[in-house]
Amino acid sequence: MRKIKLKILEKKPSLFTRLTLGILMFLLAASLAYAVWSLPTQALGLSAEVAKNVEMSGVSNPVTAVLLNYRSYDTLLELGVLLLALFGVWSLGGVSANKSSFVNPILDFLSRFLVPVFILFSGYLLWVGGFAPGGAFQAGAVLAAAGVLLFLNDWQLERKYSGFSLRFVLVLGLVLFVAIGFGFVFLDRVFLEYPPQLAGGLILLIEAAATLSIGISLAALFLGRDPSVKSDSKIDTGVHK
């Protein structure tokens, strides 16, 4: 591996620039410190309200209750942001496939052994999110790590799955979330309000779909190109041969 150095850091800026930046930074730090200092020591916040109503939310972990019940709008939009990020990366064309010529038997064994464990652990995190730290995002990230491991081992998604099936899983979380959110609008409730007796099951359902979507999206972001585009027909990455 060649050492890549940042050329911009190699020449020192002039004394004037450094002095001005130093003073500005000091002012910023001082105002931040003042802002933190003037915060009330006993913040009221909404934690008491959350704790009081957590039984209505369907889950006993207050963080999951906030993310998927009280403030589920934020989580819904986050799923959208992740999808948009993936479209952005795909629209850039993509990087050339980084393939090595031989199969390493140790790596092959390790990934065969680890990927099922990752998937199991992802399911565990999803389930445990209802009453302890965990949840869709963490579970999705572990699922994505399994994907990263496969991609590092030069695994490729079969072409028949890389078209519609892949896109279906990518949008599944968002679509299900919106569908359930709208579903109860017709039953005289506001958007994204769940009936308390169904909330637990609905949250688990949404989280399961979101885990799949988040995991596959993050893994696809790591791959950096649309797998349905042929990898050997390399798209221009800005570096001409």
Binding site: M1, N98, S100, L107, L110, S111, L114, V117, F118, F121, Q138, V142, A145, V148, L149, L152, N153
Partner: peptide
């Protein structure tokens, strides 16, 4: 448990890519 499991990913990325 997360750290113990996922440490392998970074190590493999290093071996394969760097």
């Amino acid at each position: 448990l997360v750290f113990a499991l996922l440490a392998a990913v970074t190590a493999i990325a290093f071996v394969k890519r760097a």
